[in-house]
Design a protein around this nucleic acid. Structure first.
Lengths: 215, 215, 215, 215
DNA sequence: CATGAATGAGAGTTCATTCAT
DNA sequence: GATGAATGAACTCTCATTCAT
């Protein structure tokens, strides 16, 4: 058993090693321009080995997203389950988003690309299922937060899933649009300011309150 | 002169014909899986002809975005220049977004993909310049609207460009996230509802008002 | 008839116009990298027009050689037919070579390339026949000069055609090798000195004389 | 170590295998008409494999020349370094040329084509450097031979490099011109006789001697 | 398990040539 | 005769993937 376990651990380590390399290469060159050989070199492995751990290039790419989705899932789960008023939870949720971004910015952007792309259609059913599952659960958890807020009269009475979608769309939209602007003008990076303002606007917009705090 | 003109018109028609075909194929298969031969077949032309009108595949892809960017630019310009209070202008701006979406949903999604992708880096300088220019001007026009609103005390006092970025990011984020959800579950399309709610939240969030309308 | 003639002349003028353009483009870019469109642009004509005057690209290329071959043929013919001792004729022959080179260096190099290349195999029988004919006649004329010299005891008793071949090979070899050296080191061009020395060596080598002039 | 060595050897064998096939195909069809697929088929390999050993078609073509250049370099080096009077060295040098020709006639002709062609300009700097280097050294060695002969009063007092150029130009010119004649009239091949006569003429021409042997 | 040489289908692109105008 | 847009075959080259070692 001990041997079994060690082998398992080693196998997992290898996977991580590959994913770390893949992340770097995909981030550098983008999905198309990155070759499996590039990744193999970066991981100091042979191309063949990559295929022992990942079915193909697309799955390797998608696998990167999985980790961050898991992290997202855990974090929003915690936010949903914590004690406190909805306003507070929204605040914590926003903080979670910053952490999700900080967890791995490049992979996050990778994932947003993936989400809205052709690649999604060509994944193996199992992997697609995992991605869907984590996405659904995360959106579900966010929805719950808004649902609670609506029920407590704190948030405006819109479909909780819609609010969750909007929240997520705003987050991903700002990150992507910022990336795009930086491609054009590499010097300026206003992501944090823009995200902060975006969440502020969202908070104000979703909050029902008559007596808004003086902005 | 008549001949010259006719030729010009025909040339433009050919371009359109190719772009229509390209749009279909790119939307169907995505950028990578779409081949120039696919597009040529769809356009009932030979592969070589495509290259008489577009320098390469990426430029053809990017050219699709240009038309919608021009439309966007015109629409937001009008909104900025029209008479009326900022609240009204925001409403018109939101309507413009619906129209931009309706103008060509597939191309719009194409464009959002383009914005946040490696492809952007590989365009010809001229085309990139055009895209940048229209983007900058459009964001600039949206900024002006918010600036006016801030100065008149209607909108919260945040950097107008940040508000414009947020507005645009929200729009693109919702459209992309919706697309993503539909890949997973093809049956449901809540785009319009979600967009509406998103703009409502944004409107509420950006409006300074003491006395918010009962939602 | 006058009209007929004028048309003929104009047609010939067009041909020349194209050949002038072709020469420039072929010299600049080499056979492969030169495109028919390049040549058409250089000639300020349309690609289609080129095909009214030349069957295809290879024939256009080969046609360039024909003019210089004709010039060569005329010049060596004159040398053969002139009065004077063989030594003098060899001198005049050498002068003719300089003139052939000066007649059009680029085309001459073109022709040497053509001679020893795949292209030769793919010409139309008529054109090939013309080239062969002029080559044969020119080599024939040179042979005659040597034959005469041999018979008069001035030149060494080797097969006159062999001597002609050697003479021509030396000339083309020096020109080609010089071209090659200039590709590598563009600054130095010792063609004239080398040619002069080459012909001197040849002259000394082919002359039977017991009493060689002190060199 | 044994394994390493075996792999090295096998790799070299593969390269040879490809070069042998390439030689055949290039000789048959010439550079342009030969396709990489042709060569791959001839080598009983897949097109992709060719690119594991050669960067592109031009480099494969040029690589053929390298071997013969190396052989040339070695042979002329030996001639230069051997003991004996200059006349004897020239004789040995001429013998070396026959051997160079015999070493691989097709490749030699290939190389002469390469030397005087556009292809040369498009090689990778490293390969070009190698070719240049070997050419320079070989011409240098030949020059040394002539230099010695001049100093000893055996050869006429011309620039040794010029004499080397002439010698090489004569050799390549005769080989190329013979090839050309054989394209036209495939039956007759007087190469050996012509070469012999050419070298004889050259020897006589370059030798200073007052008392030439009766020819 | 790991390797990495080999694969080979397939891509984008070019360009000599044609032909309706 | 001249045009030049259109053709489409053919090319080089890439790279995800496989499999014998």
């Amino acid at each position: 058993m001990g041997i079994q376990e060690r082998k398992e651990r080693e196998k997992e380590r290898r996977r991580q090693q590959i994913m770390v390399a893949a992340k770097r290469v995909f981030s550098d060159r983008g999905f198309n321009r990155a070759t499996m050989e590039d990744i193999a070199k970066e991981a100091e492995l042979s191309p063949g080995t990559l295929y022992l751990y990942f079915k193909n290039k697309e799955e390797l790419y998608a696998s990167l997203s999985l980790r961050i989705l898991q992290y997202l899932h855990i974090r929003v789960g915690h936010v949903r389950d914590e004690e406190g008023p909805p306003e507070k939870k929204l605040e914590t949720l926003i903080e979670a988003m910053y952490d999700v971004y900080a967890f791995d910015p490049l992979i996050l952007i990778n994932m947003f690309h993936l989400q809205s792309s052709e690649t999604l259609k060509n994944l193996s059913p199992e992997l697609l299922e995992q991605i869907e599952d984590l996405s659904r659960k995360s959106i579900g958890a966010i929805s719950s937060i808004f649902k609670e807020g609506i029920e407590k009269g704190v948030f405006i009475d819109r479909h909780p899933v819609a609010l969750a979608d909007i929240f997520w769309a705003l987050f991903s939209g700002v990150v992507l649009w910022n990336t795009s602007k930086r491609i054009i003008d590499i010097r300026k990076d206003y992501l944090m300011q823009t995200l902060q303002a975006a969440f502020e606007v969202f908070g104000r917009g979703v909050t029902r309150n008559v007596a808004l705090p003086a902005e």
